[in-house]
């Protein structure tokens, strides 16, 4: 039997440790689908190690906010895994510290801090990226709200643990339209939030269509490493929410035994790899949307989420 605080720490370590690997798997699958050999799966870890050894530079005139933001944002990303079911089906001591909205707030805080740091730089690219990221975040926000409404109506709470338990309860819970629609809408939001096609190219260099990726242009050395690691961790957190709360809450430890917890620590990255492969297929089969067409993408996600709430009101959802 492992003590609960240890499991809680393991949740954070699993997310932080597996996150760069998932990005590596996605890059590899994408390359394979394009007929390239691609970078090795561990490449993101090597990149991080390299960046941590490099010197850090700050643009002239940038204040302490510029250097503090990556650290604070990374701390935010490490806080969210405490709130969501990463390894266990039962809530851990800090698990009810915040609900889905609480986790969302912490993620938004991190994104806000990165945007402020980007504004500090005075570089037009970074500022443009930050401004765009905030603008489009405002458009996807209603989608997230309606997904939360759906969760609230399905479980009478807005705790991620409760929804995962509801989904596990019966097959009827999985095929009900409200659940399917909410999960699909959340998946589209995740595609936006993690900067994937059709919203943004992930591996691009300088270009005008950049959103999230442009924000870290002026950072270097360990700070850039923290930002990179942070965005990988954010992707892993969002994948964990989609997998362990919405679509596949299986493979989690039901007891505090060392075996089930270890199994869960392997199962989550495995599930995330499968989801990452799906994302890679989408990356390779669609074109990037023009910037002003992103509202259409958000409108489609909004449509799914709202229809989910409608079907619930009808009693048949």
């Amino acid at each position: 039997m492992l003590p609960e605080p240890l499991i809680q720490v393991l949740q954070v370590l699993t997310v932080a440790g597996a996150a760069p690997g998932i990005s590596g798997v996605i890059a590899r699958v994408e390359a394979t689908l394009q007929g390239r050999h691609g970078p090795r799966i561990l490449q993101p870890y090597y990149d991080l190690a390299k960046l941590f050894r490099k010197e850090a530079l700050a643009p002239e005139g940038a204040s302490w906010v510029f250097l503090a933001a990556p650290v604070a944002a990374f701390a935010c990303y490490l806080t969210v895994p405490l709130l969501i079911p990463v390894l266990t089906t039962f809530p851990l001591p800090l698990g009810y510290m915040g609900d889905i909205l609480g986790g969302g707030f912490i993620l938004s805080l991190a994104s806000f801090l990165v945007a402020v740091a980007a504004l500090e730089t005075g570089s037009p690219y970074a500022q443009l990226g930050a401004s765009r990221a905030k603008t489009f975040a405002a458009i996807t926000e209603p989608v997230v709200l309606f997904v939360v409404f759906t969760v609230a109506m399905l479980t009478a709470t807005d705790l991620p643990y409760a929804l995962a338990a509801t989904v596990r309860a019966s097959a009827g819970q999985i095929v009900r339209p409200a659940h399917v629609l909410a999960a699909a809408a959340l998946f589209m939001v995740i595609l936006y939030e993690t900067g994937r096609i059709p919203v943004e190219t992930h591996s691009g260099t300088n270009e005008f269509g950049m959103i999230e990726e442009a924000r870290s242009f002026e950072h270097s050395g360990p700070y850039l490493a923290l930002l990179r690691w942070g965005s990988a961790a954010k992707q892993m957190i969002l994948y964990t929410i989609l997998l362990n709360v919405f679509t596949a809450p299986w493979g989690l430890a039901a007891t505090r035994g060392a075996g089930p917890v270890l199994l869960a620590m392997v199962a989550l990255p495995a599930k995330a790899c499968v989801l990452g492969a799906v994302v890679a297929v989408i990356d390779d089969s669609f074109a990037k949307l023009r910037l002003f067409k992103i509202t259409e993408f958000a409108a489609a996600a909004f449509l799914l989420a709202v229809l989910g709430v409608f079907t619930l009101y009808l009693g048949g959802g």
Binding site: M153, L154, G172, Q173, I174, V175, R176, T311, G316, G317
Partner: peptide, 13 residues
């Protein structure tokens, strides 16, 4: 919480 529909009703919906 909204009760779950049967698997048939859910799939049909």
């Amino acid at each position: 919480p909204a009760p779950a529909p049967s698997v048939f009703a859910g799939t049909a919906n």
